[in-house]
Design a protein around this nucleic acid. Structure first.
Length: 756
DNA sequence: CTGCTCGGCCTTTTT
DNA sequence: GGCCGAGCAG
């Protein structure tokens, strides 16, 4: 155990006060880059040093990754500690598994993700007789999610339903809950909702847990919702040793039920709370802080505070203007490449932030084209692939045979001749006899209307699940392998002969590896634990910050991270702020906070990029720069027009642009409205093609062998679109299929289809 | 009755 | 680009 002086030596005054605060409520208002994580970690270590038992400390972080890092850092300070560090959702899952019996919940419940939820909702909507596009599972699911986050039960919801929408949703909410419980499943929101209600209704449970967690620390408190607030409040009711850390300027999850009031009203909830403000920034240059501070200063609903730093003034913040999204992606990638080549930074020093995931595609192809290593930080992507979700559904069904959604997902995968009609009969039978679908499948002989292939298929499926269930005690990777073999899934992929199935086969193979790695890292964990970890993983949990690559992620995912060089792309009206926020001032303020979060991740250099034109949903639009860019100060900001200083003749994008004009002329009477550049960079009026008047035949056809600079030789597999919108799909051995804008990619024809 | 293909529809951010 | 439902063939 280190001496107190070691724990405090490198802290500033307010940081030290926060770490050494004794008992009682504590609010730490920690500005961006003010050493928040360090303070929480040290405080945990300090408490341990003061004789608090590790088992009495609960620390809540925003992601599992952050939890893991904090565990590691506390471990360094106080080896062998057993502090409970987790996210709210993981804590909720843990509590429900441990105390679920008191709430009438089976320990082996499945956690449904949003996709599962929507499937169940579709069923509930149908049963309620609602067949209206306005009541999509997504919309209704959103309403139910908000209700649960606000601790509103189906009964409360029904009672309080005033408008028409709510009155329609109320019975669906009931039906959905019924189905969830019947499937022995909970959704993401239940992981907060059910524990919050349990703590409210079961005094003995509350007392037991409050006695166990005598010191509670919550990070990112500005992003807690009502359910989380209730959990925190109930747990700290007796001892009041609650330390919350947050920054109202970084509240970016209102859409998910977070209530900024939780942090703003902390002093009202706890009048004796000590408040410590951390305003000294250790992360960014003066230029970056000045720019970020000026932008966030435009928020009206805000406690005024500014960050100060002793860091150097640094490079100016740069606003890069591109002609279009392709140029933007290209320009950023090339800039990064050059910075690395010149030895100024490593790839891993760079991050690219986006408002929406959809923008990552353009970027991805630019990275591939230029051979720049990158990772798109979207943790779940691998497990979200169809084949992997299928295999995971088998596992979930083994753990919880009542899991309707998983049953329906895999009962006919691979094909067992069980179709929709048979499944409806099976579900009716199961409902009447109050048994789950697996049991019903075992009794298919009693359902006289199901015969032939469907009956055989269901019987086989029942036998399969029953047999696999006897192996539930096997380690996760063995179980995955067993599922692949016994279910016929692997054979189906292997024998199909389709290229994409070969890729799927490789993916499920990777899943076995992932399960094995999980087992090696957590030898005592079961397959149920494996499934839970996957379901509760956040995007950044899958991020590999050790590898030397550029990190690409959403602005939301960037919270809590820092990088020497940051690029924020598409800082345009409609994207940042997002168009869905423009109607309400407080929504725009949240977008501004999102922008602020992104800007303050940067340590040395910050680039804010936007384009004058952007392709979106298959359509090209003129784009205007974000109002946030106009809010930037003049000093410490440099504006560079990357569209102006290109040579007017022969860049890929110029060519693309001139062909767009041609395409417009060629297809003017087809009803297709390709994008029309308002004005060319050299001042030529819109619509007048100034580029080469004609496009020579590219010679591309399906089957053509082409050579790409980075990816090598590949074969054209598909051509689509016209003119500037023409796309070419090429399969490269080892790289898979890539789609390019035909006019923007350099492909040398190696050999035409049918040539000798 | 099942299974495949095609076309229409929607697409913010996430645990 | 991706998902769901409709429609058609076996």
């Amino acid at each position: 155990m280190p001496a107190a002086t070691d724990l405090l030596a490198d802290l500033n005054d307010p940081q030290r006060q926060a770490v050494t605060h004794g008992d009682g409520p504590l609010l730490i208002l920690a500005g961006a880059g003010s050493g928040k994580t360090r303070v929480i970690t040290r405080r945990v270590a300090y408490l341990l040093q003061q004789g608090v038992r590790a088992g009495n400390i609960l620390a809540i972080t925003f992601t599992n990754k952050a939890a893991g890092e904090m565990r590691g850092r506390v471990e360094q300070l106080v080896p062998g500690h057993r502090v409970f560090i987790s996210t709210f959702h993981s804590l909720g899952a843990r509590l429900l598994r441990q105390y679920g019996d008191r709430l009438g919940l089976d320990r082996h419940f499945t956690i449904y993700d949003t996709e599962d939820r929507n499937k169940l909702l579709r069923d509930a909507l149908e049963a309620t007789g609602i067949d209206d596009l306005r009541y999509s599972p997504e919309r209704v699911g959103g309403a139910i999610s908000r209700a649960k986050n606000a601790l509103i039960s189906p009964q409360d919801y029904e009672r309080a339903a005033t408008d028409f929408f709510q009155q329609v949703v109320a019975p669906v909410y009931h039906g959905y809950e019924k189905r969830l419980r019947a499937a022995n499943a909970v959704d993401f929101d239940d992981l907060l909702y059910l524990p919050a209600l349990a703590l409210r209704l079961h005094a003995d449970l509350r007392a037991e847990l409050a006695d166990r967690f005598r010191y509670i620390l919550i990070d990112e408190y500005q992003d807690t919702n009502t359910a989380q607030y209730e959990i925190v409040r109930r747990l700290s009711l007796g001892h009041r040793n609650l330390c919350v850390v947050g920054d109202p300027d970084q509240s970016i999850y209102k859409w998910r039920g977070s209530d900024i009031k939780n942090i703003l009203d902390f002093e009202r909830d706890f009048p004796d709370a000590r408040v410590i403000t951390l305003t000294k920034n250790y992360r960014s240059t003066q230029a970056i802080l000045h720019a970020a501070g000026t932008v966030i200063g435009h928020n009206t609903q805000r406690k005024k505070k500014s960050l100060v730093t002793d860091n150097e003034p640094g490079e100016p913040v740069r606003v890069l203007t591109f002609d279009n999204g392709l140029d933007e992606a290209e320009g950023v990638v090339l800039r990064i490449k050059e910075a690395v080549r010149a030895g100024r930074f490593r790839y891993r020093d760079h991050a690219v932030f986006l408002r929406i995931n959809a923008l990552s595609r353009t970027l991805e192809s630019a990275f591939l084209r230029h051979g720049v290593p990158f990772q798109i930080v979207k943790g779940l992507a691998f497990f979200e692939r169809k084949e992997n979700k299928d295999v995971l559904a088998y596992l979930r069904l083994l753990v919880n045979p009542a899991d309707t959604v998983s049953f329906l997902r895999v009962v006919n995968e691979p094909v067992r001749g069980v179709g929709k009609a048979s499944l409806e009969k099976l579900q009716r039978f199961a409902g009447e006899h109050r048994i789950n679908l697996v049991e019903a499948a075992g009794q298919v002989g009693r359902i006289t209307t199901i015969k032939g292939k469907a009956a055989t298929g269901l019987r086989d499926f029942h036998r399969l699940i029953t047999e696999l269930r006897t192996r539930l005690d096997r380690p996760p990777h063995e179980l995955v392998q067993l599922v692949l073999e016994k279910s016929g899934y692997e054979a189906m992929l292997r024998d199909s002969g389709q290229d994409e199935d070969a890729e799927r086969l490789a993916n499920v193979g990777e899943l076995v590896t992932a399960a094995r790695q999980f087992h090696e890292a957590n030898p005592d964990c079961t397959v149920a634990d494996f499934l839970e970890q996957i379901t509760l993983a956040s995007d950044v949990d899958g991020w590999d910050e050790q590898a030397d690559h550029v990190s690409v992620m959403t602005l939301h995912a960037s919270k809590g991270l820092e990088f020497p060089v940051v690029y924020i792309l598409a800082v345009e009206q409609g994207l940042l702020p997002h168009e869905r926020s423009l109607a309400r001032d407080d929504d725009v303020e949240e977008e501004r906070r999102l922008c602020f979060v992104g800007m303050t991740r940067a340590m040395k250099e910050l680039y804010l990029c936007h384009a004058r034109h952007r392709e979106f949903r298959g359509q090209l639009h003129c784009a205007i720069e974000s109002s946030f860019l106009r809010e930037l100060p003049d000093d410490g900001v440099e504006r560079l027009d990357m569209a102006a200083d290109r040579t007017p003749s022969r860049s890929a994008a110029d060519e693309w642009r001139s062909r767009t004009a041609l395409a417009l002329r060629d297809w003017a009477d087809t009803g297709v409205r390709p994008f029309l550049p308002p004005r060319k960079p050299n001042g030529t009026p819109a619509g007048t093609p100034a580029g080469t008047p004609d496009t020579p035949d590219s010679g591309l056809a399906v089957g053509t062998l082409v050579q790409h600079e980075q990816l090598g030789i590949g074969q054209v597999t598909d051509l689509s679109g016209f003119g500037a919108l023409r796309r070419v799909k090429v399969r490269f051995p080892g790289h898979g299929e890539k789609t390019f804008i035909a006019n923007a990619v350099k492909l040398k024809v190696v050999k035409k289809k049918g040539d000798g």
